[in-house]
Design a protein around this nucleic acid. Sequence first.
DNA 1: AGCGCTGTTGACAACGTTACCAATCTTGAT
DNA 2: ATCAAGATTGGTAACGTTGTCAACAGCGCT
Lengths: 335, 335
Amino acid sequence: MQNGKLPERATLRDVARLAGVSEISVSRVMRRAPHISDALREKVVVAANTLGYTPNRVAGALKTATSNLVAVVLPSMSNEVFPEVLDGIESVLSGHGLCPVLGITQYDSGRELEVVRELLSWSPVGIILTGLDQDAAIRRILLHQNIPIVQIMDVEGTPLHAAVGIAHGQAARDAAELLIERGYRKPAYIGAWAERPSRSRIRRQAFEARLAERGHPLVTAQISAKKSSVQTGAEVTQALLATHPAVDAIFYANDDLAIGGMFHCMKSGLAIPGDVGLLGFNGISFGQAAPIQLATIQTPRFEMGKRAASLLIEKNAAKGLIVDLGYRISVGSSL
Amino acid sequence: MQNGKLPERATLRDVARLAGVSEISVSRVMRRAPHISDALREKVVVAANTLGYTPNRVAGALKTATSNLVAVVLPSMSNEVFPEVLDGIESVLSGHGLCPVLGITQYDSGRELEVVRELLSWSPVGIILTGLDQDAAIRRILLHQNIPIVQIMDVEGTPLHAAVGIAHGQAARDAAELLIERGYRKPAYIGAWAERPSRSRIRRQAFEARLAERGHPLVTAQISAKKSSVQTGAEVTQALLATHPAVDAIFYANDDLAIGGMFHCMKSGLAIPGDVGLLGFNGISFGQAAPIQLATIQTPRFEMGKRAASLLIEKNAAKGLIVDLGYRISVGSSL
DNA sequence: AGCGCTGTTGACAACGTTACCAATCTTGAT
DNA sequence: ATCAAGATTGGTAACGTTGTCAACAGCGCT
């Protein structure tokens, strides 16, 4: 597959020697700098190809003190939300020759610190983080770097530089209003994974507070310790309805759980929305295409990634900006 | 947010001066090298903290000619498959202090070449690519680097170094056998996105070939130009059943499409599997939790990422190894 | 011929770090 | 007290690239 002695990776010097030109000329050809004669370019290109030369951006980045890397810190890759955000980020970055370097925190702020350190050590041109609630230690480090910082998901708080997201508390209050408006009087809430994403806790609390204000307090909130999944949603819904048969509507922390709830109802012959109304959060495609279209709060996840990356690139915009992308309540047919 | 004059990022030299020690000592403390007195360490840590020093790995990588970056080239982030693979990759890398640098090709081999160039220029310690069918130009460049290469998803072919995946052709032949065994005689196939992922084309062809061998040839294959989604699955299924009412079973390119088919049948009152049997591919959680459990071919996506990353790390193993992780046929209740 | 252009090429130093070697200081055994 | 072995610290030179400046050719003009 490969002969025993692996050839060292070719450098600018190797190419220069083979082409019979100076190193700097090779560098210029590689970077498509102006003022290069066709003859020189040709010689260099041939030499580079025969050696299989790949520029060493590590050296280049050291010299120029810039890179084409963007640090992206996400809490998880195992639900639909963050891959979509990342997709949005990547779609913009790739158009500008930038590469995302990824760090996953698993919702652990200790790991987040490590990950941020790690990523910053690569001199990224900017960093995208999730949420507004980083530890003081992380904030300190971030502000010592000289790069734009964009925090995504949330806008209810104070960003380090810029923030792109939605108002989760407001969304949850709207959810409460919607249920009451539709005549529901015994609302419940279902969450999962011990509310690891702090934004889901904020939503639950805002939901609960508004319901209380409107005189129809939350009947029960069941927060599973398991990770969010359709399966978990089905299980928790079953348990909740068994212990609280009076419940007439359930607001879920996300659509995965809500669809699980829907599947449970379908299996056990409960009418949606006749027996129980279901309201999800996020607006994933499964919910919208389901036989009973799931009522949900649509969040612009791909767009969020795109805007975050765009803000990072127009560096001037990256200071003190808060971009609230808003959400769209889709009433569906499950309410 | 930041005073007008941004402070330059602190270097080893700054820390050394402030701490009153040599640069190399600071370097050693930062790298937790052995033979450092507590007194020295203390001085350095204090100085580093007051300056908010972050090591510059770009310089370190240049000197040591190694990095902690792993190039990961994926075709897409917009279905469930690749985020899960990436999750698996990341779970292993993070345990070894390595960071994934991401490139998305959008199934475009021109972009793949660019992306590979880009990523390789950062001197990653290894590279993970999708599929075994890279262009000759890409293969040439890859083999000129001196790093382990792991190709994921597919094992039916010749890897550059190592491959981790499943046998797609075999899986599709098994699917054909399953349908016939269960008594289906008018099988159809539904795909999407113009079969951009070449693996889905391989599956269709193998499926078709085996059906023909068994004397029950494919009735029709409908390949939508749209991206795979539940919605697309529903639409194409409707169209297919309208024009080919005799079809008694459908094999889908993936579970998203299959669930769309399931939803369509539920809405339009078709019995599953009475009127039509459905067979998906991948085994995503929605299908397994659905009211009618989707029959599917379970693929180990997370595991694939894990194994790929592991192979990369144990460099000696990365030459010429083919790891077939296999699949599991889950008959569900949709057949 | 001499002048100032523009276009093209090269020499050299530097980016921030670490490998290598040398220097110094301890420690404990003789 | 002396010496060897080890622990701890520092000086210097790279890693591969690019910014800066300088050099030189060819051109048209006076």
